[in-house]
Design a protein around this nucleic acid. Structure first.
Length: 592
RNA sequence: GGACGUAUAGUGUAGUUGGAUAUCACUUUGGCCUUCUAAGCCGAAAACCCGGGUUCGAAUCCUGGUACGUCCGCCA
């Protein structure tokens, strides 16, 4: 609780000095109380024991007794060697009314500061529909974008389009050379496209890609095919505009299909940057020339070139190849050109990458350092697998995001119409869509990114306990109260601007809500700075839980009588829930 | 083989710049709707991979194992 810490530290400093403790190390020992019932901040006094020659319990007691009082401090106690300080609930309520808990908005409409942040995420090859594994990147990335905006930063969400190289070439070759019947014949042993997704280009065109992959292995003229594809790859890497255009015609509808899936999850991008740009504008060849001048530059037998990053501390395979024997560039080379370009337009750079990119990111980082550039922050995440094992389109062991969202919507609709038979079909569909997509996002974001994750339908579609609908429900309940007040003829605007009397005695649920409100911003800052969005997801669950406790203990409208203070707190909490939900991509519907 | 990451109740998960009685949810189980939305609330049971070390104090740090994941392409 930062706001309490600011008040407490000078008082503690004085009390500690008075008791003969002079080193300043204690500041880092003052931590959030582990025993929530005991306090908000705690100071373990064990390290002072040696210095003072007294038992820790006694020292804690001495400090407690010599601590000056303050409006901010409610209780001070010394237990088992710990000095516990609890904030005064009345003071917390004052802080809340003074707007100390305000956070920004998730749409970045009015950034509070001038720090420009570029978040690059997703950047999936445009060759097929998203499965839930690939979607972890998009959900993490979009959440980082939203949380940074909530934190007041100026953020750009960027998708790096892999518009050259072998994967796109294979897709382009297939669309040009294979008929629909060729494709269906080749893939006769696989599941057909779900009829629901017919006409959605990511689902349809991936069949061409898959058929081409099969044909490249088996067909009699496979060497000719390979040569054709190589020729296209080679041309693209030398910036051949006709070939790049044919690639674009092949992948763009696929990419559009993929983006419509993300759109359903509330995920948008500000800019799309094509990889080929760095070839056609000459950045890549300039970069390769510059690499030649480095003292860690090396040449292989066939003329391929590399940097020996072993000299810069890289372990294992230390040669980082940036140029093939035929003179063309590699993906990583272009990635470095891309990073230099990105650094020209932001103060901070965040890349969201799967753990399979760790080595590559290390190589890019070391090379950027060699070039005198800054190194980007990277948010790595571990993969999502299925109970049957690794997700693989080839083996048919895959769950498409489109299918998951449909199922989530359907199951949510069943719950809504069960609870509220009086709702119209349209209302049910709308609420179910919000609850379903929000639940899918939340179930992925609430888990620490570095933790492996096994996708299970029953967990992805859980709508109780620690889920998005649980949070949405608390918020909807707050909305319902406000509606009820308005309906009973209360002038909401004037009531909210009244100066309410803060009660000196508060029920437990109210105190808990105030304490939760007052650490909300601290947790947001930590989640953003440490790139750990799940911390904020857990805080939002805590906020919803605290609101439920407040709802239990504090009546707002009773026998037609409005409790102004309770209503103001309820509305503040409601607003904080709403913008926090938007920060995680949960839709704050007002009625459920 | 080498590098990196992960290991917490039956299940999933939080907590790791060392600190108290280890968080939350699901499951199991006992209660609460004639009062602002019960997708809710209150209670019970249940866990730090194994061995050593450092420390007043270790889930957290060091070390040695074990299990799982990822990488070790002139692919992207």
């Amino acid at each position: 609780m930062q706001m309490l810490r600011i008040v407490l530290e000078p008082l503690l400093d004085k009390a500690l000095t008075a008791n003969g403790i002079h080193n300043q190390h204690w500041r880092s020992m003052l931590v959030r109380s582990r025993e929530h019932d005991q306090g908000d901040l705690s100071l373990p006094c064990f390290p002072f024991a040696k210095e003072l020659g007294k038992p820790p319990a006694e020292i804690a007691q001495m400090i407690a007794e010599s601590l000056d009082s303050s409006d901010a401090i409610g209780e001070v106690n010394a237990v088992a060697g710990y000095l516990n300080v609890k904030a005064n609930p009345v003071w917390l309520a004052e802080q809340v009314f003074l707007n100390a808990i305000r956070i920004g908005d998730a749409y970045g409409s009015k950034p509070a500061n001038d720090e420009h942040i570029l978040v690059e995420h997703t950047s999936a090859n445009p060759n097929g529909p998203f499965h839930v594994g690939r979607a972890r990147n998009a959900i993490l990335g979009d959440t980082m974008v939203r949380l940074h905006r909530l934190h007041g930063n100026n953020v750009r969400a960027e998708y790096y389009v892999d518009d050259m190289g072998k994967q796109v070439a294979v897709l382009a070759w297939a669309l040009k050379n294979l008929s629909a019947s060729d494709v269906e014949q080749t893939l006769s042993d696989r599941e057909p496209v779900n009829s629901k997704w017919q006409g959605k280009a990511d689902h349809e065109r991936v069949r061409w890609y898959q058929a081409a992959q099969a044909i490249r292995q088996d067909r009699a003229d496979k060497e000719q095919i390979e040569a054709d594809i190589s020729k296209m790859v080679h041309a693209s890497e030398h910036g051949d505009e006709a070939v790049l255009k044919s690639f674009e015609d092949a992948y763009q509808p696929v990419l559009d299909g993929m983006l419509s899936t993300l759109k359903r999850l509330g995920i948008d991008f500000d800019t799309f940057t094509k990889e080929s740009m760095f070839v056609t504008n000459g950045d890549v060849s300039r970069l390769m020339k510059q690499f030649k001048t480095f003292d860690i530059h090396g040449v292989a037998e066939n003329g391929a070139e590399f940097l020996d990053l072993g000299a810069r501390g890289l372990k294992g395979k230390t040669e980082f190849f940036f140029r093939r024997g035929d003179g063309s560039s590699l993906y990583a080379t272009r990635d470095i050109a891309y990073h230099m370009w990105k650094w020209q337009q932001c103060d901070r750079l965040i890349n969201v990458l799967g753990e399979d990119h760790k080595l590559q990111a290390k190589q890019v980082g070391l090379t950027l350092a060699e070039l005198g550039e800054k190194i980007p922050d990277v948010l790595f995440y571990s993969f999502i697998k299925l109970p049957e094992g690794k997700m693989s389109t080839r083996k048919g062991n895959v769950v498409y995001m489109d299918d998951l969202l449909e199922e989530a919507q359907a199951q949510a609709a069943a719950v809504v119409s069960d609870i509220h038979p009086e709702y119209t079909t349209e209302m049910v569909a709308e609420i179910a869509e919000a609850a379903g997509t929000s639940a899918v996002r939340f179930n992925i974001i609430k888990v620490s990114p570095d933790k492996g994750f096994t996708f299970r339908w029953e967990e992805a579609l859980a709508f109780e306990g620690g889920s998005a609908p649980f949070i949405m429900y608390s918020h909807a309940r707050a909305c319902s109260i406000a509606r009820k007040c308005a309906a009973s003829g209360i002038d909401i605007t004037s009531v909210l601007s009244e100066e309410a009397t803060i009660p000196s005695e508060m029920p437990k649920g109210l105190v808990e809500l105030l304490r939760t409100l007052c650490i909300h911003h601290d947790i947001l800052a930590k989640a953003v700075n440490d790139r750990r969005p799940h911390l904020f997801a857990n805080q939002l669950l805590q906020l919803a839980t605290s609101f439920n406790a407040f709802y239990r203990d504090c009546m707002i409208l009773q026998d037609g009588e409005l409790n102004v203070f309770n209503f103001q707190i309820s509305e503040l909490a409601r607003d904080l829930m709403r913008c926090s939900m938007e920060g995680l991509g949960i839709l704050p519907v007002e009625q459920m």
